[in-house]
Simulated scan of single mutants.
Amino acid sequence: MRTLPLLALSAMLAAPAAAETIYVTNERGDSVTVIDGATLKPVATWPVGKRPRGITLSRDGKQLYVCASDDNAVQVIDRATGRVVADLPSGEDPETFALSPDGTLLFASNERDATVTAIDVPRRAVAFQIVVGVEPEGMAVSPDGRTAVSTSETDNALHWIDIASRKPIAETSVDARPRHAEFTADGRWLWSSAEIGGTVQIVDTATHKVVETIPFAPPGIAPEKVLPVGIRFTPDGKRALVALGRANHVAIIDVATRKVTGYIPVGQRVWQVAIDADGTRAFTANGLSDDVSVIDLKTNTVTATIPAGRAPWGVAIAP
């Protein structure tokens, strides 16, 4: 049997195991930057609609959905060609959205008209629309597909929607300017970031009441610069990463204890964060430094900085 030289074997073991692709919306560039996950280099820039912000992958992985906020549409992008193949109808100024577990409904928050639009994805038509709080921003759908939640920046509230009845069912008061909402995998808790409040709050989904408030204090950073926005859980559900805006840091929270365990310095004005499927790396969209920070989640350090377009806002990862 032929034996590989030690150096060759070491190189094979050190090679990237997965060829992920990272997609970044550039709010002021009207584009999506495509990054090769193996080389950590930009490989393409796709033109899209005006002021792209929220971005996510379709359930089958073949398409991307992008909020073209100033075009009042959610655009569908073919991953194979990079072309916009459809504009899904939304309300005015969609910022973010959330997909139902089966991928058939997409819930978009419409900042200007204070509504949430439920889009029937296969039909590319509006399924229904609900009035919520003023300036709705973040959207989340529960893992069981029964409940949608929007965050109202001006009302400082979360609005809960029963998807089956298409009616609002509850309202939760939270800290100032809620921006992002994220359900835990079991659907038991909803985590919500408050940008001006400088906190993340945990809500009991059974009672719709806040049960925990988590503050942040990155070393050497003025409190007024701590502006939490994006929240993501690692695949094992053990840690949460929170983008802290102008603090230029990502906070790491132990989900079990609900305590901050560390801070990672990243690029300027970090908006959103995405975590890869095996939980080894995170990618941040840095809106003022026009780049993406790559975080090694084993060492909690930034290992690379990747140039993007103008004002990166959202991040999505595809295997």
Rank of each mutant, 00 (worst) to 15 (best):
V126I: 12
G138Q: 05
T33R: 06
T261E: 12
G314W: 03
S10D: 08
G138S: 06
T56Q: 13
I119E: 10
L7D: 13
T257Q: 06
N26W: 02
T154C: 08
A19S: 09
R179V: 10
E171V: 08
T25W: 12
I221V: 13
G91Y: 10
I163Y: 00
T3H: 00
P265C: 03
A73H: 02
G187W: 00
V242F: 08
A68S: 14
K41I: 13
F97P: 12
I35Q: 07
A176F: 03
E20V: 06
V149T: 03
S193K: 03
V260Q: 03
A157T: 06
I77H: 09
I295L: 06
N300V: 01
A18V: 04
V270R: 08
Q272A: 15
L64Y: 13
P178R: 00
W313C: 09
W313S: 14
L297M: 10
R258N: 11
D175P: 07
S152Y: 01
K238A: 15
G133E: 02
T261F: 07
A15L: 14
V131E: 12
W271C: 11
R239D: 10
A17C: 06
P319F: 02
H208S: 06
P5H: 12
G230F: 02
I22W: 05
E135Q: 14
P223F: 09
G133R: 00
V226N: 03
P235V: 07
R269H: 14
D162C: 00
R246L: 11
I202F: 01
G230Y: 04
T284N: 01
